[in-house]
Simulated assay, not measured.
Amino acid sequence: MNRVTLSCTALLFAVFTASAETKSDFDVFANLDTGPGNVTATASGRIIMSQHQFYQPQYTVVEYKDRTLLPFPNWEMSAADSTAPLKLDSVLGIRSDSNGVVWMLDNGMRSGVTPKLVGWNTKTNKLQRLIYLPAPIAPKDAFVNDFALDTIHNHAFISDPAGGINAALIVVNLSTGAARRVLQGHYSVVPENVDLLIDNVPIQVKTPAGELVRPHIGVNPITEDLANEWVYFGPMHGLSLYRIRAADLINASLSAEELAGRVERYSDKPISDGISIDRNNNIYLGDLANNAIGVIDPTRKYRQLAQCPRLSWVDSFSFGAGGQLYAVVNRLHRSATLNGGDNQAKPPYFLLKVKALAAGLPGR
């Protein structure tokens, strides 16, 4: 897993500011033998990745260190705490906070276990928090996927595309563990009737009966600005990004109708997976259909920053300790799950470094 420069000629797009012209660039920070899920970076500089369950990984979470993937957390080092090792089943969403806690969202789908949100303290190397998400908070068809971490309000906001029509956000109080399912079935979270085609090949899922269907996935991308004021989200299969104030999401006194009325359409977006945001409110995302990285700037305009065949399903973004922006490439459209049962995905997969337009918050 070496760091190599990524070369794609004529694929960088100029970005103009009031005073100067800058370019957004990226390179491959590491070649990976297994398909990553999401990535986060701690304030101390550690890089933690989930491993995508579609590829049946041995470890669902790993740390990239010294060009090697190491299982995370290191349960053996925590043995002195007399805490029985916690089994992680299918982690995708992963974020870290300023206190050194890495939060892992385990959807439990590989083993059919109850979804949970797990906080691991990297400073003490101990379990910080364990919050289960039983039904009806996470229904039988839940696919708790990604989340935004709000350390000011001490809440997590989870995206659950579920079965599409019942997609929703889940609001979790990190202090009490209390959780609420909100905006279920709202137009801002349910998928639009748009197909995803990559390299002219449609994303298809094979049903138990052998039929090939084109899935439409609900709310997935989600992030929050650095002021912890606005939560941005939208359906993966959707061409709109929405936002709502964090204060409204955590206000349990609002009725479902009142909360729905607080949702704003923010901007256009392409079909996309994970997103992140910098201190200037530039929102970064993978433009899946076009093998590209894009940005929604503060004027609410979307544009591509870079396009390249190697940007083959850019899944997740996270800022690091030095203001750099990490991203992962996992080629999910070539996995058996999304390629009609035919696995065409092959390593290397990538951990990228993206030259962001502004610095961001480590872990977000």
Rank of each mutant, 00 (worst) to 15 (best):
V113D: 01
Y326K: 10
L127W: 02
Y242I: 01
D33K: 01
I170Q: 10
V189H: 12
N2R: 11
A43Y: 12
P134E: 04
W120L: 03
I94F: 12
L226M: 05
Q307F: 02
S44N: 14
S50W: 04
S111V: 03
A247G: 13
R265S: 13
K346E: 09
V39M: 02
S50Q: 07
T114N: 12
E264G: 06
A41Q: 11
K355F: 00
K269T: 06
R364N: 10
Q53K: 12
S159W: 03
Q56A: 11
R95H: 12
D287E: 13
I152E: 11
V62Q: 09
D27N: 12
L169F: 07
P270I: 04
L86A: 10
A246R: 03
N290C: 08
W313G: 10
I275R: 07
K140T: 13
H153K: 10
N220D: 07
V101F: 06
N343P: 00
S253A: 13
S316T: 10
Q344R: 07
L338R: 09
S96E: 09
Y232R: 02
A356Q: 05
R67S: 15
V15D: 15
R181S: 12
L149I: 09
D89G: 04
R181T: 05
S188Q: 07
G322K: 12
K206R: 14
L12R: 12
P136N: 08
F54K: 02
H153M: 10
C308E: 10
T176N: 02
Y55L: 12
G238M: 13
N282M: 08
S78C: 14
M236H: 14
R110M: 11
V314R: 08
G185N: 04
G322Q: 05
H155E: 01
G322I: 02
S318Q: 07
A14Q: 07
C308N: 11
G93L: 05
L259K: 05
G100A: 04
R129E: 14
R46F: 06
L105P: 05
P309R: 04
V61R: 03
K126Y: 09
A345F: 00
N281Y: 01
H155R: 02
G341Q: 00
A345M: 01
E21R: 15
L305V: 00
V189T: 11
L88Q: 00
D273T: 03
V172F: 05
A247P: 01
R67Q: 15
N154F: 12
G218A: 02
N125S: 14
E264M: 09
S318P: 02
L226E: 10
G218E: 02
P348A: 03
K269D: 05
R331N: 15
W230S: 09
Y266C: 08
F54M: 05
F13K: 13
L130F: 15
N173I: 00
V231A: 06
T299A: 14
L239H: 07
P348H: 04
L357W: 05
G341S: 02
P235N: 06
T114Q: 13
T151Y: 04
P221M: 04
Q204L: 05
G218C: 08
Q128T: 08
